[in-house]
Design a protein around this nucleic acid. Sequence first.
DNA 1: AAACGGTTCAACCGCAGCCCG
DNA 2: ACGGGCTGCGGTTGAACCGTT
Length: 312
Amino acid sequence: MSTSKSVSSSSEDDNELRRGPWTLEEDNLLSQYIFNHGEGRWNLLAKRSGLKRTGKSCRLRWLNYLKPDVKRGNLTPQEQLIILELHSKWGNRWSKIAQHLPGRTDNEIKNYWRTRIQKQARHLKIYTDSREFQELVRRFWMPRLLQKAKESSSSNMSIQNQAIPMPFDYVSQHLTVGTIPPWQGPCMNEAGPTYMDQHEQNSDSEHNNGSCISLSESANIPKVPQHFGHTTITQFHALNTNDFGTFTYEGYNVNNNVYEMDNFKTTTTRVAEDAQYPIGDCQMVGSNWVDNDFACNMWNMDELWQFSKLQK
DNA sequence: AAACGGTTCAACCGCAGCCCG
DNA sequence: ACGGGCTGCGGTTGAACCGTT
């Protein structure tokens, strides 16, 4: 993008289309026009509003920035969970994913994926569409997000006040076998339809058949062995109990009380019978492989990678 | 304080699909 | 059936920002 070069002042050439960052005046002009005439017919809007912008540019500015219901700020753990899950099912269908995240734009979700998720994958030198990465997400990322979601919901807000409808229903129904977590709380609709039941089955029934989806059930992703599913279930149960204690599963020694990853120590051999999971060859040790600032860094990837290399 | 490098995100581009005449 | 206009989508870019040296 040649933004700075191509942003032209109106004094230069009144007929030249402006590009690059929008000014406050332009924003006001666009908002005012849409307030009076409504959205749509973007090319006509661009001509009549007095903006020296293309219709495309106007549409983008409105939908991604000016529209009143556009949500600003960091994605919540619940939103991140939904993105991970839906991306595993649909891939880079950003607009489709965005439909399930009220107030979030496809652009924002795409940026999140590329700058956060893919960055982590790059650090580990694995592809985000690989089985290894899917396992990483399922094993470590999602539980961490669940824990964060739990913390955020219990500490400062009720679920009802959150923009994402029924995130825990969504998670509990679709990431696991459907256990309703106790921490879901009385405000959750335990008996009623889930988020995806309400929002997806009608619009996407040809893909979904009304059944729950999960990373392991994604159409895009090979089914993982059954014991991976079991791992998820036990991890999820661990979120719901205070006395689950430490247990070992498939070579993973997991202190799963509340997913305190600080105490998480794995020494693994290959974890899948078909030997397709090189990530199982890495070893994660110590108290700080999980970064405290979850919003910025899910893991200390450098450290993780170092251990990964050491094991090879 | 300045230089530098990495990250984020708003904005652009090309393409595909849809609609309508 | 065809072509043109419009809209939406996904990939890419680069300015702005931020942290580090």
